[in-house]
Nucleic acid binder design. Structure first.
Lengths: 184, 184
DNA sequence: TCGCACATGTAACGTGTTACATGATTCA
DNA sequence: TGAATCATGTAACACGTTACATGTGCGA
């Protein structure tokens, strides 16, 4: 059990397979047609990733011979794969995640239903909100510390980043409310 | 002049060097301390990137021997490097850029002052706004087409993406106004 | 003298991208 | 017959990450 990096794509695959066992081709379709596309798509990424996951024992593939155009390999997560997914979902949110891995955080949230634990999801959202607000403080500081001759374009680019994070903060507050209302 | 991929990091370096000639170490500092950090940072990325750019003739490095603790290599863009930067800045915005390379677009905008062409910057913003709105339409469609048993978390994750793009659309409108007001 | 800031790099490793290869079946 | 869709893969290539290596000068 050596240290291994699991990429966002790996988690995306694991999550999708948890949702429903399916083939590499099916998965590709999802990436091509939905917003999940930002987590890859090309066959050159997806098939090797599935092979990796299989070698690591996180997914299992059964060849479906029944009346297929061509033998189709249907993957589903193993017990270990489900655990890996859950560990990732339950992981604490760090500053770094918010600064440089926003997309991965969103992916994590999208699969949070797997935990089936309303309290955990609320903690996730609250922690996300806190980190975003903290980072916003730093961005504001950077905005004020910009040297005088900074061109308008550069200022506006930073402003765009700030607006993006503000949108996430607002979203988190709304999401928390949504989970309060939709309760037992 | 063979086809070569220029990465966002390459452009970030080119842009920063256009702003002011400086050493690899200086550049690292910028990545470490500002929001530019999302375009890399680690020395293992930055020094090889500078070497690449030098091999391609996009930057030139002079060793500064004058009373330095240790010889410092100060890079500045060549004519070809400045052209490459300008070409990138003036490039038309495509749907793909908005879908999967938002960060690169923002970087591009941050350096748009290099063109010193208000009209070009406005065209950039208008085109950006249009593409974002188009993509928002598609995201809305995806939101409505979600199958009934889609968990709340997955719905909210898509909603977060939508809010993010809405924020960019608003920002673009404000930025366009900023350029109208601040005019000749 | 100890450690920190300055300053530049290399090596191993894995991953994604692009492009190509293959072959069966369905539909016009 | 030819094109599109189903279905899976490989090969070349380059890039980024992490970790390590190296050495100087300054301040406590």
């Amino acid at each position: 059990m050596t240290a291994r990096t699991t990429t966002p794509l790996d988690y995306a695959l694991l999550g999708l397979l948890h949702q429903a066992p399916q083939s590499g081709y099916d998965l590709r379709k999802i990436f091509e047609t939905t917003a999940m596309g930002s987590y890859s798509g090309s066959p050159g990424a997806i098939y090797p990733a599935l092979q990796r996951l299989e070698r690591q024992g996180l997914v299992e593939g059964d060849v479906d011979t029944t009346k297929a155009l061509r033998p189709k390999k249907v993957f589903r997560p193993t017990k270990s794969g489900r655990e890996t997914l859950r560990d990732w979902l339950a992981r604490a949110i760090e500053r770094e995640d918010v600064e440089r891995r926003l997309d991965e955080l969103l992916l994590r949230f999208a699969f949070h239903w797997v935990l089936d634990d309303r309290a955990a999801t609320r903690r996730f959202l609250e922690s996300f909100h806190r980190e975003v607000e903290d980072y916003l403080d730093e961005l504001s500081r950077q905005q004020q510390d910009m040297p005088e001759p900074t061109p308008l374009q550069s200022r506006l680019a930073l402003a765009a980043g700030i607006e993006q994070y503000r949108a996430f903060a607002r979203w988190a507050r709304k999401a928390i409310k949504a989970f309060e209302e939709d309760s037992p």
